[in-house]
C-alpha cells in the first residue's frame, strides 16, 4: 500500500469514529436519565423518559430495556395491567433467551400481585416445559410457591419451596402457617355436637362458654315448659331463644375459624412484606 493511500485510510478511520459514538451516547444519556428517575422512585417521570427514549429510538436498540423498565415503573405504582402490557412488549423486543425469560418472570410476578394467579401458574407451566436447567427450575418453583401463598394455599406453597430446598426459609414459614390454621369444617361440626366447642377450638374460650351457657339455659327452659304441658311457651322459647342461640353458636364457630385463618395468613404476609429479605413478587 502506498503512503498516500495509508494517509487517507487513517484520516477516514479517525473521522468515522466520532459520529456514531456521539449519536449512540445521546440515547444512552437519555436511558441513564430515565434510570436515575427510576432509582429515585419518580416513576411517573421515569415512564415519560423511557417513552421518550422509545419514541426516538428508531433502531429499536433500547426497545427491550425501555419497555421492561416501564413495566417495572407501572408495577411499582401498582398498575399491574399496564405493567403486564409493557413486560409483554419487552418480551416481544427481547434480544436473547435470557431477556425473554426475565420478561416472562416479571409478567408472572405482576399476575401474582394482581391476584390473577391462575394466569401466573399457566405461564410458569409453559416456562417449565421450555427450560430444564436447575437454576431456572428452582426459580419457577420459587414463583409457583409465591403464587400459592397469594391463593392462600400454604400447603401447596410449602411443597414447591421444598423442591428448591427442604429447609428453605419460605417452606418452613408456610408449614408454620399451615400448622397454625384451624379447620373450619371441624369447628362447625363440633359446634353442632356441643354448642360452644367450635369457639373454644378456635381460641375464643369466653365466647365458647357463654354460648354453651345460653344453649343450656334456653334448652332447660324449653324442656321445662314442655314438661309442664305449656306447649305454647315451649314452642315460643324453642323458636325464639334456643334455636337462635344454637344457630348463632354454629355460625360463630365458622366465623371465628375463618377469622383466625385470615389473621394467621395476614400476619405472615405482613412479615413477608416487611421482614423477608429475599426476592418478593
Amino acid at each position: 500500500m502506498k503512503n498516500r493511500q495509508l494517509k487517507y485510510l487513517l484520516i477516514i478511520l479517525l473521522l468515522s469514529l466520532s459520529y456514531p459514538v456521539k449519536a449512540q451516547s445521546q440515547h444512552s444519556i437519555q436511558l441513564d436519565y430515565a434510570n436515575t428517575l427510576f432509582s429515585t422512585r419518580q416513576y411517573f417521570d421515569a415512564i415519560t423518559e423511557y417513552k421518550r427514549l422509545l419514541f426516538y429510538d428508531s433502531s429499536n436498540a433500547f426497545s427491550y430495556t425501555a419497555n421492561f423498565q416501564i413495566g417495572k415503573c407501572y408495577k411499582a405504582g401498582a398498575k399491574f395491567d399496564d405493567a403486564i402490557k409493557y413486560f409483554s412488549l419487552a418480551e416481544l423486543n427481547a434480544n436473547s433467551d435470557e431477556e425473554i425469560y426475565s420478561s416472562k418472570i416479571e409478567i408472572v410476578r405482576s399476575n401474582i400481585l394482581r391476584k390473577t394467579t391462575s394466569r401466573a401458574l399457566q405461564i410458569l407451566d409453559e416456562l417449565e416445559k421450555k427450560y430444564s436447567d436447575k437454576e431456572k427450575i428452582d426459580s419457577l418453583n420459587y414463583w409457583r410457591g409465591w403464587t400459592y401463598i397469594f391463593t392462600d394455599d400454604w400447603k401447596k406453597a410449602s411443597e414447591h419451596f421444598a423442591k428448591i430446598n427442604y429447609y428453605n426459609e419460605l417452606k418452613i414459614l408456610c408449614d408454620r402457617v399451615e400448622k397454625e390454621k384451624v379447620s373450619v369444617t371441624f369447628a362447625t361440626v363440633i359446634s353442632y355436637i356441643l354448642p360452644g366447642a367450635g369457639q373454644i377450638y378456635t381460641g375464643n374460650i369466653f365466647s365458647g362458654f357463654l354460648s354453651l351457657g345460653w344453649n343450656v339455659l334456653s334448652g332447660y327452659l324449653t324442656l321445662n315448659a314442655f314438661n309442664a304441658d305449656r306447649v305454647f311457651d315451649g314452642m315460643a322459647i324453642l323458636t325464639l331463644l334456643w334455636q337462635r342461640f344454637y344457630r348463632g353458636n354454629v355460625q360463630n364457630a365458622e366465623r371465628f375459624a375463618l377469622e383466625k385463618n385470615i389473621d394467621v395468613a395476614n400476619k405472615t404476609l405482613n412479615y413477608l412484606q416487611k421482614e423477608y429479605r429475599g426476592t418478593k413478587p
Binding site: 479517525l14 473521522l15 466520532s18 456521539k22 449519536a23 445521546q26 440515547h27 437519555q30 426516538y56
Partner: peptide
C-alpha cells in the same frame, strides 16, 4: 475533525 464535531454537536439529537 473539529469542524465535523461542531457540526454533529449542532445536529446532536436533543430530546
Amino acid at each position: 475533525n473539529s469542524f465535523l464535531i461542531a457540526q454533529t454537536a449542532s445536529n446532536d439529537f436533543n430530546f
